[in-house]
Design a protein around this nucleic acid. Structure first.
Lengths: 146, 146
DNA sequence: CTTGACTCTGTAGATGACTACAGGGTTTAT
DNA sequence: ATAAACCCTGTAGTCATCTACAGAGTCAAG
């Protein structure tokens, strides 16, 4: 028999049982088809969808934004031109995030190198580790964000 | 006279007035030095620090995690080896996020290309735009995340 | 045909991250 | 020297995102 129950889906995708219902209500999952007695039956690919939501969340997208991404994905066959515009917007957001992460990675790995250097020399003079200082100002772009 | 008032800092870094006090309380900003009458005086680089917080938030880090990043950055001269371990952990988190974003970018730009192709041909047969379908399953890594 | 595990709905509680007062002191401009 | 514009603290309210009941129905095993 195909179709997962809510708790099966919860286990398989490692989200809370109640969260599934919540997501359905929020439009992040499509309304699940029901059995005669009203039990939800989820298809396998709901697992993928939940994984997608999880990943997008971890990248700093709100549920609202994720809903948009999913609608784009579901190809709610709009006047395609509008879809394209939204895609462009999302794409630029994603690229900005990538840039920010690149900077952050650079800061962290520089700090790590410094830290390692210090540790290697610690046999001679213990103490110290002036750790890392300013990794904050990755360019102070006078920019909005809201 | 040097030192920004709370509202000056708020304006310059485009965060809410109250958020500054909140962040101070949460340890995301160091306790600001005060004037004789108890007014806070912020240094210029607090602006950078707030910018850092904003960026990190947009990348999906919680305030808790950001506090850790900042502590690392402040070089609270710990047994350096422990700092290094934390740096490593953060670094791997950042790299994972980068990977996820790369996938997401690929999905979105593929969708965009498809969308554009369709639009270019629309003179002949309007309608259609089977938009994008599955960009969700970027590999179904059977993985945790919490 | 009962019992225990599971489902449903609706609603309330929890957590993180702000945001907005209220009541009172301080500074500045007139 | 008084009003407007700020600052302080403490506390309460808001919004997003879950998470946990409570009360009632359903299903599968013994």
């Amino acid at each position: 028999m195909d179709g997962l129950t809510r708790s099966q889906l919860a286990q398989r995708s490692r989200v809370n049982l109640e969260t599934i219902r919540f997501y359905e209500g929020e439009g992040l999952l499509p309304p699940a088809p029901r059995t005669a007695s009203g039990y939800r039956k989820f298809s396998e690919n709901t697992i993928d969808r939940l994984a997608f939501v999880k990943r997008a969340k971890a990248l700093g997208f709100s549920l609202e934004e994720i809903r948009e991404l999913l609608h784009l994905q579901d190809g709610h066959a709009d006047p395609c031109a509008e879809v394209r515009d939204r895609l462009r917007t999302k794409l630029s957001v994603v690229r900005e995030k990538k840039e920010e992460l690149k900077k952050l990675e650079a800061h962290l790995s520089a700090a790590l190198r410094k830290c390692n250097r210090t540790l290697r020399q610690q046999s001679k003079h213990p103490e110290a580790c002036p750790t890392l200082r300013q990794m904050a100002n990755s360019d102070v772009h006078g920019g909005e964000m809201e």
